[in-house]
């Protein structure tokens, strides 16, 4: 039997053989692998890039106190970005499944329309959900726009849902029964996480403190991007800390998700906060494009 970590290792080496940089997870809370700078910023501009990384993705509202076999507060995405997308990408992707032991002559493989959109990032793409014997295992997206900017080179994003894929391959019904390695299960490794963060997100998170934090991070990002816009010297532009400014956007996005899970946001406010985060992401993306030119 292939363990959870076997599958990760095989997928990483498969894509590494396609010249992808093996990145490590981004060290901040994100709701999806797309939000990491390795995707969000790398897809902007004309420079080719390829990377693969596992990103723990936190969605506070999806927590179920570790009691639901299929839903997790934090799930693991294996994220692949190929920019530009190669012509044989579907075939390559199918071969990656075969690399983890899925014989596609014996399984029902379908690409079903599913266009991905992330309103807080001003990003969207065209693609499919990949269905294997009726199970959605990957989101397959040709990015079209990111941070409100039309993309020069069209990247493909493959997001594998690692828990689902492993549960499928190990033939278990609960994600917690996944064998992480030969000794420990997913439950052993992650259950406490799920329980405690569910309690925090649904019961304990201090709404007013989080609101304040949201505002502080928002202000910090806005301040930095605003300052960048006033820099005239090219060398100064090139060394300006836009990456830290993007960290602040991610903070806002996560804090917003926490408030949302806590049920602290009214419907009208919800739309307004999404707009606020989106605005940060969009102005950051524009500044980033500008800086890339300055760097050359």
């Amino acid at each position: 039997m292939q363990t959870y970590q076997d599958i990760i290792l095989k997928l990483k080496s498969f894509w590494a053989a396609q010249d992808a940089v093996i990145q490590e997870p981004f060290d901040m809370e994100v709701g999806a692998g797309t939000m990491c700078p390795e995707t969000f910023l790398r897809v902007l501009g004309p420079k080719p890039y390829r990377t693969v990384y596992v990103q723990p993705s936190r969605r506070p509202a999806d927590g179920r106190y570790g009691e639901n076999p299929n839903r997790l507060y934090k799930h693991m995405q294996l994220q692949v970005i190929l920019k530009p997308s190669p012509d044989d990408i579907v075939e390559l992707y199918m071969r990656s499944l075969e690399a983890i032991g899925i014989d596609l002559r014996r399984h029902d493989f379908k690409l079903e329309e599913d266009n991905w959109e992330a309103p807080t990032l001003g990003a969207w793409g065209i693609g499919w959900q990949v269905m294997l014997d009726g199970l959605e295992i990957t989101q397959f997206t040709y990015f079209q726009q990111c941070g409100g900017i039309d993309l020069d080179l069209v990247p493909v994003e493959l997001t594998y849902g690692l828990e689902r894929l492993t549960a499928f391959l190990q033939n278990v019904d609960s994600m917690y029964d996944i064998q992480w390695n030969d000794t420990w299960t997913y439950r052993d490794v992650r259950l406490l996480d799920e329980q405690q963060y569910s309690v925090y997100n649904f019961e304990k998170a201090d709404v007013s403190a989080i609101r304040k934090a949201f505002e502080i991070h928002e202000a910090e990002s806005r301040r930095l991007v605003g300052e960048y816009q006033t820099v005239e010297d090219t060398a100064e532009s090139a060394r300006f800390p836009l990456l830290p400014a993007y960290d602040q956007v991610l903070k806002c996005s996560h804090l917003f998700n926490t408030l949302d899970a806590r049920g602290a946001i009214s419907v009208a406010e919800r739309a307004a906060m999404i707009q606020r985060v989106r605005k940060l992401a969009v102005s950051l993306a524009a500044a980033w494009m500008d800086q890339q030119e300055a760097i050359g």
């Binding site: 076999p69 299929n70 014996r106 399984h107 029902d108 294997l132 014997d133 009726g134 199970l135 499928f168 033939n171 019904d173």
Partner: peptide
């Protein structure tokens, strides 16, 4: 022939 696809679909439906 091996009933793999059937079992896969059954598992998804059960969930």
């Amino acid at each position: 022939p091996a009933g793999e696809i059937q079992r896969g679909h059954e598992r998804v439906l059960r969930a």
